[in-house]
């Protein structure tokens, strides 16, 4: 990879990560449906993994997760009256969102742009399900009781609104990555080497 390409990759990823995360936490009330905020960070990580592969997904996932933890990292009470700010949970969740997105259905989907929406939908649902499970575990560990949302509430108040709002956010981010992204022509050529894929597989039509 040429030096110029590497610089482009770092700059574009850096700008997008900082911009999207700042946008999400600064104007969360403007990008929300039924209390669920458009998860620009998550969508960005999913699409990076989907379009540009595992290595990019790991790096972007970790950095985005660190910012997520920094801005709004969850608090863990741990049975005391002094809650501590957890660091790393966002990194872990974003890492796996990227990793799953980079391996799940990429051969079947051929990294085609319209199917990026399907990928966002699948990983968003997975993220929410894992999030709810983790949260229940954390509540149990911290001794805050066993009361939690019902399955119906999780589906109607959490999963569906989050999916809708994330799908709405997918279109601009997908276009940004494809046409103003870290790689020329929106293609990570390293993924093509040895995979038997051609650039045609990336085309949308």
């Amino acid at each position: 990879m040429k030096k110029k390409e590497i610089i482009r990759k770092f700059v574009v990823y850096g700008v997008y990560i900082i911009f999207l995360s700042a946008l999400q936490v600064s104007f969360s009330d403007s990008f929300s449906i039924n209390g669920q905020v458009a998860d620009l960070m998550l969508v960005f990580v999913i699409l990076t993994g989907y379009l540009f592969g595992l290595k990019d997904a790991i790096v972007v996932g970790l950095i985005t997760g660190l910012l997520r933890d920094y801005y709004a990292g969850p608090a863990f009470e741990g049975g005391t009256d002094q809650p501590v700010a957890l660091l790393g949970l966002g990194m872990l969740l974003m890492l796996y969102a990227g990793v799953i997105s980079s391996v799940l259905f990429t051969k079947a989907f051929h990294r085609k742009l319209p199917l990026g929406f399907v990928q966002v939908m699948i990983v968003t649902v997975s993220y929410k399900v894992v999030g709810h499970v983790l949260f229940v575990i954390m509540l149990a560990i911290s001794g805050r009781g066993s009361e939690y949302l019902s399955l119906f509430e999780i589906v109607t108040d959490s999963l569906i609104p989050q999916m809708i709002v994330n799908l709405l956010a997918t279109a601009p981010i997908l276009l940004m990555l494809r046409y103003m992204g870290p790689y020329k022509n929106g293609i990570n050529k390293r993924l093509l080497l040895g995979s038997g894929e051609t650039e045609n597989l990336w085309r949308t039509n």
Binding site: S26, G35, Q36, V37, A72, G73, A85, G131
Partner: peptide, 13 residues
């Protein structure tokens, strides 16, 4: 400065 990132990351700055 900032508000919640999602339903679990809901600490503000």
């Amino acid at each position: 400065l900032t508000r919640e990132a999602d339903e679990w990351f809901s600490v503000i700055r």
